[in-house]
Write a protein that binds this DNA or RNA. Structure first.
Lengths: 240, 240
DNA sequence: GCAATACGGATCATACATTATTCACGCGTT
DNA sequence: AACGCGTGAATAATGTATGATCCGTATTGC
């Protein structure tokens, strides 16, 4: 990934990967929706979004249209765009579907295992395990939310590394979409869910089984983790 | 689908389901890409598309942005939109992923089976089996392609009815996306693939097993059908 | 109290300006 | 002479602004 040797020319200004405004708004909106900054059910007014991200109305509309196909925003003709509402039923569907999709992807990944894949998994695991999570016990409204963005990123990379070897572009795409949808619920119920987990051990159990080539055990461990998240969320909803 | 009785009020101007230009272009483009009218790899020029479908450039861009999230068009920042190229590798991935996604969905559908679902499957099967396919033996360039749009629609409905009871909105969505991507390949290689199939028997085998509650046999029959499509495509590519 | 209508706001569509990319041509080098 | 590199014009995408259309709400008249 980071190998530079294959492009000997040093000043190669071609392909600077410049981001258009529409793409910038797309990423910004995606992040803010997943992180719960934009509240579920809230209407997304074009002009407000445009001002918020310092862009025009046109790129905003393009970004919203892209997101609508990924179910990260709801769209209704002539009525506008909305942040998707949340519900226990929806979250159950996300978790169950994710168990199926990622379970299959993990199984295939293990079945096709290579040394390069194992290396990538080990590195991703190592980085994740060495990134501390900043908890907070008291959930007071005024308190600032601790920044776990580094952990979040490495968590995403970790799960992606596990299934990256499955050989199916589309399965990876579906898994990515579901991961984002699920992450949104985790952010919304973060206050109560973080402290109660033993994420490190859970992740390690998946990796150990995966590297040992034990498909059934790895898949079960992965699905257990997701199902536990669902259980915690259910308790949070009923307990609060 | 065609039942009208459920809306007793005759002049109900509310919710006329009026289609915006962007949505109209979206559907038209989707159809033409799936049917192969727009050739794989071809560049989609905004102005041309706008003129083709009698719309402005803005709705065209919105439609293209929606389709890009469904992988029905490729998008590159500052370079424009393209009809996705086709390849055997891509088709293999689509078929394999589809086998798994729809296999899982069918299994869940059968597991949750209700009388209403069985009725819907029977109706969809009946309609599909009674819709003739217009073959054509000689594939001369000048000859008009026979119109099988009715069969295509009922084929879509049939497969959707089978898995509709799986209980997962997202799984159904993924299956729908994969079905479209696969349909595109079928259209492109239609000339050679249609005559060699015994679709009716293949479909009946799936239904018989599904209604009998035999999950393993139903899933196997479904996957066999898809894998046979892949095999035929492979032979077409190498044989031509 | 109900219904029809007028008002306000937002979305949709079109036209225009800006900016990046691509291709072709010509110059210089090997 | 052939190849590579840099320059420039044409092309196409992106971004901005404005007018048209449509929906929801509130008000007014009966």
């Amino acid at each position: 990934m980071t190998i530079q040797q294959s492009s000997p020319r040093r000043n190669a200004p071609r392909r600077v990967e410049k981001e258009t405004a529409a793409t910038a708004v797309y990423h910004a909106l995606k992040r803010d929706i997943v992180r719960g900054v934009l509240e579920p059910g809230h209407k997304l007014l074009i002009d407000q979004i445009a001002e918020r991200y310092s862009a025009g109305t046109n790129p905003v509309r393009e970004a919203l249209n892209r997101l609508s196909s990924e179910r990260l925003v709801d769209r209704e003709d002539l009525r506008g765009f909305f942040v998707p509402p949340i519900s226990l039923e929806d979250f159950r569907d996300i978790v169950n579907t994710r168990c199926w999709v990622e379970g299959k992807a993990l199984a295939e990944s293990i079945r096709n295992r290579t040394e390069a894949w194992e290396d990538a998994v080990i590195i991703a695991t190592h980085r994740l395990q060495n990134t501390p999570i900043h908890y907070y016990e008291h959930t007071e409204p005024g308190m600032p939310v601790p920044d776990n963005s580094l952990w979040e990123e490495r968590h995403r990379i970790f799960h992606r590394a596990l299934i990256a070897n499955c050989g199916s572009r589309h399965l990876l795409r579906f898994a990515g979409e579901l991961m984002l949808l699920g992450e949104r619920y985790r952010f919304i119920s973060m206050a109560n869910s973080y402290p109660r987990r033993r994420s490190g051990e859970e992740h390690q159990a998946i990796v150990d089984a995966a590297l040992a080539g034990d498909i059934d055990r790895a898949v079960a461990a992965l699905q257990n983790q997701y199902r536990l998240t669902l259980t915690i969320y259910e308790e949070t909803m009923s307990g609060a």
